[in-house]
Design a protein around this nucleic acid. Sequence first.
DNA 1: GATGAATGAGTCTTCATTCAT
DNA 2: AATGAATGAAGACTCATTCAT
Lengths: 222, 222, 222, 222
Amino acid sequence: MVGKRGASVTGVTRVARQMGSKSMDAAASLPREPRTERGRRTQRAILDAAAAEFGEKGFHDSSIVSITQRAGVALGSFYTYFESKEALFKALVLDMSEQVRQLALPIVAEALDPVETELSVLTRFLEFARDHSEIYRIIDEAEFVAPDAWRAHYYGGAGRIYARIKAAKERGEIAGEVDEIHAWAIIGMNVFLGLRYGVLERDRSPAEVAAIANQLLQRGLR
Amino acid sequence: MVGKRGASVTGVTRVARQMGSKSMDAAASLPREPRTERGRRTQRAILDAAAAEFGEKGFHDSSIVSITQRAGVALGSFYTYFESKEALFKALVLDMSEQVRQLALPIVAEALDPVETELSVLTRFLEFARDHSEIYRIIDEAEFVAPDAWRAHYYGGAGRIYARIKAAKERGEIAGEVDEIHAWAIIGMNVFLGLRYGVLERDRSPAEVAAIANQLLQRGLR
Amino acid sequence: MVGKRGASVTGVTRVARQMGSKSMDAAASLPREPRTERGRRTQRAILDAAAAEFGEKGFHDSSIVSITQRAGVALGSFYTYFESKEALFKALVLDMSEQVRQLALPIVAEALDPVETELSVLTRFLEFARDHSEIYRIIDEAEFVAPDAWRAHYYGGAGRIYARIKAAKERGEIAGEVDEIHAWAIIGMNVFLGLRYGVLERDRSPAEVAAIANQLLQRGLR
Amino acid sequence: MVGKRGASVTGVTRVARQMGSKSMDAAASLPREPRTERGRRTQRAILDAAAAEFGEKGFHDSSIVSITQRAGVALGSFYTYFESKEALFKALVLDMSEQVRQLALPIVAEALDPVETELSVLTRFLEFARDHSEIYRIIDEAEFVAPDAWRAHYYGGAGRIYARIKAAKERGEIAGEVDEIHAWAIIGMNVFLGLRYGVLERDRSPAEVAAIANQLLQRGLR
DNA sequence: GATGAATGAGTCTTCATTCAT
DNA sequence: AATGAATGAAGACTCATTCAT
């Protein structure tokens, strides 16, 4: 799945390089840009294998040997492209965080009513969670393994939700007040619904889950 | 903080023994009952040290040596009271899960309006999160280290919320439909608010956060 | 040979602790004091095995596994008593440096004529080099592996020689001027003679080598 | 500095090839003769980079990648010109040993009084040590990394000193007996003075150091 | 000749767990 | 019960060397 969007890690690299002056560490932990096509394939294979391995076993029970075996490359090749196990994990989190961010873009572009927008975003997100449960595990575990990347992911997500509802408020589409706190409430809701109905048990469809949960945004419990 | 309620682990032990037949693992991982007063103090010291250590460093970066040093006991004593590092962690999670459960009890007993109830529960929970951030880290990390205990914690929490709102619905205090999905939405909201405003940054008071977030349950975004 | 003077590493430890405030590093790299008799034996066995191993293969070709195997202890035991391979090496150098220092003490105490003194010291030193050639290799390699310890060793040695000849000069036993440079010349002489005639080839007896070399101190080449 | 005498490695190669039958190792470790001008420049760049790297970090902390990066050539190019890391080091030692040997030639040609000769040689050597301290490190470390080359260097050096003083003795310029042991004493003196006053601290001028040290050859301590 | 990706043996180091005292 | 020494499996990481392009 990571492999499907071959350019993404490179993309992340580019983005990170632009903000590279902020911290040596961050810059140092970026994946090393392959210089040949073969190199690109190897790096890709490692990333895909790592996503699967981390998703299944978690960070600490995953091992570099095992990842490289999965990827069908030599152990040493890992270090041609990544500084360390942590750096790989972080690269993966940044990559996945970006994927999650992409989910909402087309929906937001449709410029619906704010409650409708959040409904669609949630639906899309639940589908994604169901199809990419390993991503869940990885981003969640980042809280402990790559706290910076984890914070960036959630602060970013909450920030975007907040921006959306604030804009709606300004357009007069929301009557009550609007606060960052609402955004964190919504992201928490989404994350737990994704976890429960997308990852742990899939006993309800994404559409149904989203519709029922969305009632809270529509009219509260009342 | 664990230490303050000296009986809790023992309590948990008792509870768990009752359901002990379910799994060898569960039974095997229970803390070993101390037989003397001195033993009780040692076990307590280890539990407290472990809560601090796990809270600070996370499961994998915590070590048994370091925990026993913090506790001021010999390394070998650890295995007198716990089967393994995992068993200790699990005992801690069960213990903490129980503490969190206790938070809501007095509030629920007051039998308020359902939205009011959730408001109070959330306020209480945010206060707790602010004062016991290490518990957050431990319960969260349990998703990867002690998945059973983690599931038990959240299924339990969502289940209790669901029970509350279902009862309110039956009492006619809620107009719309009521679903387990709502319960998971609410717990997710609570957890993320606790994390954001209790653990990561404490820039808003528990009461304020709870009040603003509760607007969603009261009337949605509208 | 290290083992013969069972107390020496402990002795070094004690000495180093007294100057311990100078550098965290130095303090951190000290051998960990064993708390039981068994521990003392284990540490001793490791030190002896290490002296042999380093002496034979040099620092980089020696491995911790191999040292612990030689010592008949488990790999992990190494880290109970030493911080790292480097720390072990350094401990050994300090230990040996001390041994070398001890060589001269009884001779100096005899208070002979200065040239006689240096003759005796050299003789004694050559005997020692012949019997402990591994010490040579270790101290010499310290120039690259533990430069601090190495410098301390040679500055100390040269300093003591200088002190001896200066005192002799003050007693009127030396006519010409006396300089630190003379001390470094003498120590260099001794070291190379030890290496050539004690370690590399033993085709001349210590007494003979010392006697002939000492002619230089007695009357120069003339 | 190595680069300044571009022909030297090639020169060494020639010399070594003549005695090549002695050992497969020696023959095998010779630098591979470049066939084009471009190749010559590449080999030169590697040698210069290696001298700097080995001088700074020592043999084991130097790496081929790093050396080739310094040299501005590709990693693979290294193996076009050298058999192995050890072979490169050895080539360097032979090269430097030859440089050191060259130092004395013009002085010896002047045919002075023997003590005068050694004074001049030492002065020249101290100047050289001060200006080429990395050479010191490399030759010294050869004791452990390329023992053959190291022995050749010092046996050669001692042999030449011995030849000089023996000849002087035969010319009647030295009264006392003359022995190989004297030669080793002198070379040890020189080496340690070079290390102390040329490499470690440069607090005395080469001329002063040589003059004071030379008193020993002139009249001993007396 | 030059390049740099790929390889994998080799090492240090950590740490949960056991057990003799 | 308490102690802490001993154990060794496991895993991250390095780097000299090879080889296809």
